[in-house]
Amino acid sequence: MGLDFVGQGAGETDGNIITTTIDKVVNWGRKNSLWPMPFGTACCAIEMMATLASKFDLSRFGSEAIRFSPRQSDLLIVSGRISIKMMPVLKRIYDQMPDPKWVISMGACASCGGVFDTYTLIQGVDQFIPVDVYIPGCPPRPEDLIDAVLQVQQKITSGASPKGVEVVYE
C-alpha cells in the first residue's frame, strides 16, 4: 500500500504518522473490490460459475460481487465465443462500464476464436475491445480464472493503467 512511517524516534509522534499517496490508497481499494461483469456465452461461463461458487470461491480475493449491470462493474470477463451478431452487444456493454475498467478474455474462443474458425465468429475480442489479461484453455480451469483476477490485481497495484484508457500526463 506504500505506507511509510515517519517520525521515528522523535518523541510523542513516534510511529503515529503515516504517509502515502492518494493513488496508492485508491488502487488498494480498487484491487480488493473488483466487481466483475460476466459476459458468459459458452462453456467458459460454466467454469466462471464454478469459480464464483463455494468450492473455488472468488470472494477470497474480493471480487464476489457479480454485477449484471455494466454501470456498476469494473471488470469485464468475456467467457465464451462471440459471434458477429453478439459483438456490438459486447462493445456496448464495455462502453457502458465506468472507467477505470479492466477486461479478462477467458478461454481460447474469446481470445482467438478457438476451434471455431468460421464465417460467423469473431477471431479474438481484442480486435474490438482492449483486453488486459488473456486466459488460455478450452475451457480454462477455475484456478486459471483466479490467476487472471490476481494478475489484474497486480496490474492495479503496480499503478499501470487499464489497456483501454489513454493516460494523459500533464
Partner: peptide, 20 residues
C-alpha cells in the same frame, strides 16, 4: 458453396449499422 471462413464479413462488419 459458401466458404467456411466467410467472405470477410467477420473482419469488416459494421457496428453502427446493426441494431443493438
Amino acid at each position: 458453396d459458401y466458404p467456411l471462413r466467410g467472405r470477410g464479413e467477420r473482419e469488416s462488419f459494421n457496428f453502427e449499422k446493426q441494431n443493438v
